[in-house]
Design a protein around this nucleic acid. Sequence first.
DNA 1: GTCTATACCAGGATAGAC
DNA 2: GTCTATCCTGGTATAGAC
Lengths: 217, 217
Amino acid sequence: MSTRERILSEALTLFSQRGFDAVSVRDIARAVGIKEASLYNHFANKQAIFDSILREYADRWGSLFSRLQLTGEDGQFTVDERTVAMYGQMTREQFNAMAAVLFEAYLKDNINVKLRKLLTIEQYRNPDIAALFKRLSFEDSLTFQTALFGAMIRAGLFGPTDPQMMALAFFSPIFLLFYQYGDQPERFEEARAVFTRHIDHFHEKYGAPAPKKGSTL
Amino acid sequence: MSTRERILSEALTLFSQRGFDAVSVRDIARAVGIKEASLYNHFANKQAIFDSILREYADRWGSLFSRLQLTGEDGQFTVDERTVAMYGQMTREQFNAMAAVLFEAYLKDNINVKLRKLLTIEQYRNPDIAALFKRLSFEDSLTFQTALFGAMIRAGLFGPTDPQMMALAFFSPIFLLFYQYGDQPERFEEARAVFTRHIDHFHEKYGAPAPKKGSTL
DNA sequence: GTCTATACCAGGATAGAC
DNA sequence: GTCTATCCTGGTATAGAC
């Protein structure tokens, strides 16, 4: 890992805990194990470190959605024809597995967690940061899930309903869980238990009437 | 308004926008219209201003719940027998009106909004602040609504289901809306429209089967 | 209770040797 | 590319007159 990368990594950790202003260049240098002056061989100033973190780590976020077979166009995530068809054939188990991926990305991926904390505490200082915070924290997820649920409703996997409100109902509890447990990694299993209850409850409320056997609802 | 109160008010505004470290004592003094040195006649130091804001404004939060006829015991909000009985007789319109109170308190009450922003951006620096952030942002609301929905389910106003997951389903979209629209007061009506859609959707999914007429679901 | 003046220090950043 | 040494600014806080 190059010195430059180590600087970015340590700075992300510190900024995500205390915010830009409360972290000094001295703090970052100490964490990396070099002198302050040496930092300036890698970055023009403190702000440049911060900007690089956003630019270089925010891209990682897109990789989650590409794993979920999403086509990103102009930063607007839409689901293409073939993907819709694929989602239309999804079983409940496959859906739950995908939900688990989303959940773990939100609460366990260290870089995602730190980046979102950083954006959370810096969001009110700058409109660009606010926009990035929103996109990464919920907008991309909501847009993706609205398309997904739309496809699954058309395929009869869920009863007919408003896909946008359905996505909100599905995602916002996960969003809240992040704030409830995001600062306590040691309670992750507790968070996962609530998540599982949420998913079960969601199926109970939104599942299509069972095709053969008695009512699930 | 005393000088002391003006200091607290201006400091809350500044801290909620930029955070503790990014706001200088000079900034606060300028906003109040006095010299820095004069501040020290009212508060021992910058930290004392911050602490006083939390102590004195956080109490306001309780007043929302007392308006909703809640009995607070040991900081734990529970609904007493008589109140449960009262909620059991609530109509859907009364329920919606109460939801609107909650929604406006979240997005429009200036002190609540600023205080929550402040807690949002300072939460990772101190466990006490984290606890206060959680309580004020969602825990009190979720605890209250779990009790409320429990009473309403028993009264037959909603179909039988897990009241805790129901409270999460009801509240977490409002929580998310705060982050989506909290920094743009000019888009409040847009937020309200989403809120209304959410409430309608919620009734559609959770409402008891209509007693007489055709199905709502 | 507010002012002017000032002490003091921490933090950002640069120069220049190695 | 890292170091030592140093500069300078801006921020916290105090002293003491009015």
